[in-house]
């Protein structure tokens, strides 16, 4: 039943004449949560950008559902939801408008669905205020709300817990666990200790970086 979604073989990345990782091999199955660990500067974000296709400064092979990822880029993007280091939230727009444009890239969501997602990330009552009036954590929550709206099976999340309060972290963790239960796959970087027995897989970049 478990299908290997993503497979990485002998990945090597060099940056500013420093080897970030070398001979990196791992795979992710459907329904797994992969946590990438490592100290600051060990290349976690770089690895996520390489997998998502934003960066091509690497050697090695990446396979998506058994095919070289460069050949199935469009299929991959149909399945991918990416939450980057920068949240992609427009400061001049309201949370509602922000969700409307970004979700329109994947699928058409009704206003009711958008409202429900904003309610789930505790932004009820803020949906019509411009985002520059919101706090950093609330802006981050707007980006998190996209996770409630997207139907894609594969998520790449770069530090999703940044600037989120304790209760928000617990809710997001529960949501990720529930998502994995239903067969969704997540790759994320965080320094937070995740508690998802059986589903969680870890890759440590710290060792290779030294």
């Amino acid at each position: 039943m478990t299908e290997t979604l993503l497979e990485i073989k002998n990945l090597r990345c060099e940056r500013e004449e420093r080897v970030l990782f070398d001979q990196l091999c791992f795979s992710v199955d459907a329904g797994q949560v992969l946590q990438i660990e490592g100290p600051n500067g060990s290349g976690k974000t770089t690895l996520l950008r390489i997998i998502s296709g934003l960066s091509s400064a690497y050697e090695g092979d990446i396979y998506w559902r058994g095919q070289p990822i460069r050949k199935v880029r469009t299929d991959f993007y149909h399945d991918l939801h990416y939450l980057g280091h920068l949240p992609g939230v427009k400061a001049a727009l309201t949370p509602r408008e922000n969700l409307r444009w970004s979700c329109a890239l994947e699928a058409e969501d009704s206003d009711a669905q958008i409202e429900e997602a904003l309610d789930k990330v505790d932004l009820y009552g803020f949906e019509d205020l411009p985002c520059f009036t919101l706090s950093a954590g609330q802006q981050r929550r707007v980006a998190i709300a996209r996770l409630y709206l997207t139907a894609t099976p594969f998520w790449i999340l770069d530090e999703p817990f940044t600037a989120i309060d304790l209760r928000g972290v617990a809710e997001l963790e529960a949501m990720l666990a529930e998502r994995a239960e239903r067969g969704g796959t997540v790759i994320l970087t965080t320094h937070h200790q995740l508690d998802m027995p059986g589903r969680l897989k870890k890759v440590n970049l710290g060792g290779e970086a030294q």
Binding site: H78, G84, L86
Partner: peptide
Amino acid sequence: RNDFDDGSLELLLLSPQ
């Protein structure tokens, strides 16, 4: 410029469209 600074450009590049 604006899309680059706030990360929306990455969303556009990674969208299935």
